[in-house]
Amino acid sequence: MRLVPRRGGSAPVISVLWLTAAAAAALTPGLLAPGDPSAVEPANRLRPPSWQHLFGTDELGRDLFTRVVHGASISLTAALVATAVGLVLGSALGLLAGFARGWTDTGVMRVVDVLLSIPSLLLSLALIAALGPGVWNVAVAVGLASVAACARIMRSEVLRVRESLFVEAAHAGGARWSRVLLRHVLPNATGPVAALAALEFGAAILAVSALSFLGYGVQPPDPEWGSLVATGRDFLREAWWLALLPGCTVALTVLASNRLARAVRP
C-alpha cells in the first residue's frame, strides 16, 4: 500500500490532516479546547460564532467548539467500534465464502443477499429496537448492519486475487495453501481492504450520527455530534450555528475518510 497517493493532488493530504485533528480531539480533547465542555455561563446564552467562541455558545451558555471537540471522542469511538464489528465479521464471512466455495459459499452468500435486501439504517433500527437505545448499542447495530456489504466485497476480492495468474504460478511452483494465502493472496488484498475500512468508517460516522440525531445514542448532557445537532435543531430559528456547525463537522469527517478511501484504493 502506498501512503503517498499517486493522484488527486492536495485533497488526500488535507483529508489526512483533518482526520489527524479529529483523532487528536478524540484522544486529548483538552489540547485543542482547554475549557470544560459542561461549564454553564447563563450570561453568554446563544452567542453567535466569534473569536472568543469559535462555534458560538448554546442555550446554557456552554462553548460549542469545546463541546464539539469533546464530542469527537464518543462519535469517533462509536464509529470505530461499528467499523471493527462490520469489518471483522464481514471479512471472516467473505474469506470463508471465497475460499471454501461450493455449498459453504452458496449458503453464506444467500444469507448476505438477504441482509443486503434490508436497507442498512432500517436493520440498525431493528437491532436498536431489540437491544434498546444507548451509544454502544447504536455502534454494534451499525456494525452488524454493515457485515453483509463487507462480506460481499471481501469475497470478490479473494476471488479476484485467487484467480490471478501469479497465484496459479505459485501453485505450479509447489506452494501449499497456507503459503499461497499468506504470501500471495493476503498481501495483494490489503490495499482494497484498507480502502474498504476507510469507506466503512465514513459510513459508520454517518449512521451513528444519524441514529444519535434521532435520539437513540447518548443522552443530552454528554456531547456527541449527532445529539448536538438534535439539540441545536430546536434553536435553528434563532441560533443556526448550534445545529449546523456540529453537522458540518460530521460532513467534513465523512468527506475526509471517503476521500482517503479513494486515494488508497489500488
Binding site: S209, A210, R233, L236, A243, V250
Partner: peptide, 16 residues
C-alpha cells in the same frame, strides 16, 4: 462526493 458525505439531517436543517 459531497452529496454522499453530507448527512441528510445537516442538509435538511441547512435548507430549512
Amino acid at each position: 462526493p459531497l452529496g454522499v458525505a453530507v448527512p441528510s439531517f445537516l442538509l435538511g436543517l441547512l435548507l430549512l
